[in-house]
């Protein structure tokens, strides 16, 4: 541990409300000590939840850890505090670009460029975005056939025996399907019953003081079911019990990303 980090850690221990956690977490991030950086930043975010820069720091660390959904939530939190906060627009711009969410990427990168004109990384991303977008728009229409609402999750699900549904706020299926061995689609039935769990979670979270819910996992006799809020609905993945829970959670993240992209494209 460097003398700087030790000194800042001691200062933070002596005064937990100090803003010294910001440079401390930055240094830890720079050294690649991501778990430690994340702990310091999250604790700081709890104490200084009103600061946009703190959520930006949490987001950058989460992104370094490969956790894109947490990064996106943290940057959105930043923007809810300071709508013009350039760092958050920059982060979201890069993230949306990586995920192929072209319109959102363009909006965020555009705002970030206005905030910091001449930033070479932003300029490069801006240029790359327009090239990638033009290529995507010029691509043959054939792939779109594979992305009919029932099939948007097929690629993310692979052959793992998992199924995924995108449900709206009323529990109606927006995309995905739940086919039985006989070819019957039970999506509407499953969605109608399980979407209420998300409503119950939202109600509970209002009293828990733990922030908004980000994921629910249920382990039942026949299946593992996980769900995550997506726009104003829910993405749900169900898997046979023999599929490891970690894999099901990972699939959920991928499917939620696919759902957001698809909704963005459909909008």
């Amino acid at each position: 541990m460097s003398a700087d980090i030790r000194a800042m850690s001691e200062q933070l221990a002596a005064d937990p409300s100090s803003l010294i956690f910001l440079p401390l977490a930055e240094q830890l991030l720079g050294r690649g000590d991501l778990a430690h950086a994340s702990r310091v930043a999250r604790k700081g975010a709890e104490r200084h939840a009103h600061r946009a820069d703190v959520h930006d720091l949490v987001a950058r660390i989460a992104l370094a850890q490969g956790d894109e959904s947490t990064a996106e939530r943290a940057w959105r939190q930043s923007l809810s505090i300071a709508p013009e906060f350039g760092a958050a627009h920059r982060g979201l711009g890069f993230l949306c670009y990586r995920q192929g969410r072209w319109s959102e990427a363009e909006a965020h990168l555009g705002t970030a460029r206005s905030a910091t004109p001449g930033d070479p990384a932003l300029e490069a991303a801006w240029e790359a975005l327009h090239v990638a977008r033009a290529e995507a728009e010029a691509a043959p229409a054939a792939p779109a056939v594979a992305h009919t609402p029932g099939q948007i999750f097929d690629e993310a699900l692979g052959d793992s025996g998992q199924v995924a549904l995108l449900l709206d706020r009323d529990g109606l299926v927006v995309a995905g399907q739940y086919l039985t061995a006989e070819g019957e689609d039970l999506g509407a039935l499953i969605g109608a019953h399980l979407s209420g769990v998300g409503d119950e979670a939202t109600r509970a979270m209002r009293h828990f003081g733990l922030g908004a819910w980000t994921r629910i996992a249920l382990e039942t006799e026949a299946a593992t079911v996980v769900m995550a809020p997506t726009d104003d609905g829910v993405t749900l993945v169900a898997a046979p019990r023999e599929v490891p829970l970690g894999l099901v959670r990972r699939t959920l993240e991928q499917c939620a990303t696919v759902a957001r992209q698809w909704l963005g494209g459909a909008a």
């Binding site: 709890e46 509970a204 996992a217």
Partner: peptide, 8 residues
């Protein structure tokens, strides 16, 4: 088993 994960 049921797990509810939240921001904090």
């Amino acid at each position: 088993f049921c797990e509810l994960e939240a921001e904090r």
